[in-house]
């Protein structure tokens, strides 16, 4: 089965006008929710053209960090720049450069899939013909053409993820920030999405994905940062971070918390 490829590359107005500036720079981002410090001074440098993985255990602050870096959540401290544009000083310019797939939020799910992606394009001020053309391409690439007229509320979890991804790609951003993009997506669609993202990075775009599937990150990404308890434990190229061991072993070593005690002896069937 040949995987569809999407002629997706960042618009000229995007990153290529400032080719040398890093795609995303984060300095000292911090956020507190009541008593709990969710993110405690995170610094990150995401080079342009990299495929950057953000890994960490549940509740590590990945989603909070990405929300603050993309202008969805106002940080208590710190700054973020997208291709040199300060996200919180010039939000509209910064958001033009970014495509975002947040995790754990609703969609306007009483729209059909086609309407939702169209909506995302029109909200960004794109013209009708370009939107229509790209919507058709995206639906085809993500294998959603047959369900384009179905309401998103009736989609399965994986289809919902895919339609949200399509909405984040419509304006050909130069930086894609994807929070848990492969959760509940079937293997074939996941492979298609990986191909799309790989060709996007190949054409000069930058992708940041958060995940807790180490194997996936190790295969897909060239850079990785390990986050736990709101701080960055390690960051760099995948080879730098994992050293001699596998990424998963290195991650467990950094984060800790493995339960090695013998237990559940009754569960053995023999």
């Amino acid at each position: 089965m040949s995987s569809p490829t999407l002629p997706l590359s960042p618009d000229d107005a995007g990153g290529s006008s400032v080719p040398d500036s890093p795609a995303l720079v984060i300095r000292g981002l911090a956020k507190r929710f009541g008593e709990k410090i969710a993110v405690n001074g995170v610094d990150l440098d995401v080079p342009a053209g990299s495929f950057y993985g953000l890994v960490g255990p549940n509740g590590a602050g990945k989603t909070t960090t990405l929300s603050m870096a993309t202008g969805l959540l106002r940080p208590d401290h710190g700054q973020a720049w997208v291709h040199g544009v300060d996200v919180w000083e010039h939000p509209l310019e910064a958001k033009k450069l970014m495509g975002i797939l947040p995790d754990g939020v609703r969609l306007f799910d009483r729209l059909t899939g086609e309407q939702l992606v169209t909506y995302a394009g029109l909200l960004r001020g794109m013209d009708r013909d370009t939107v229509a053309e790209r919507v058709a391409d995206l639906l085809r690439a993500l294998d959603l053409t047959n369900d384009a007229g179905t309401l998103v509320v009736d989609y399965s979890a994986g289809m919902t993820k895919k339609i949200a991804l399509a909405s984040s790609l419509i304006h050909a951003p130069s930086l894609l920030v994807l929070d848990e993009p492969f959760e509940s997506v079937d293997p074939v669609s996941a492979a298609n999405i990986r191909d799309i993202l790989a060709s996007y990075v190949g054409s000069g775009g930058t992708v940041i994905v958060s995940s807790h599937v180490m194997d996936l990150v190790q295969r897909m990404c060239d850079h990785v940062a390990v986050i736990a308890a709101g701080t960055v434990l390690a960051a760099g190229t995948v080879d730098e971070v994992r050293g001699e061991s596998s990424l998963e072993d290195r991650f467990v070593e950094l984060v800790g918390g493995r339960n090695t005690a013998e237990g559940l002896t009754w569960l053995r069937t023999s």
Binding site: Y119, G125, T145, A148
Partner: peptide, 26 residues
Amino acid sequence: VTRKGAGNLGFFGRFPATPTGAVAAR
């Protein structure tokens, strides 16, 4: 759920293709 293909944009096809029009259509 009956699966339906593309082609029916509803109000999105009738309102002007601007952010304001899109918000109104939605």
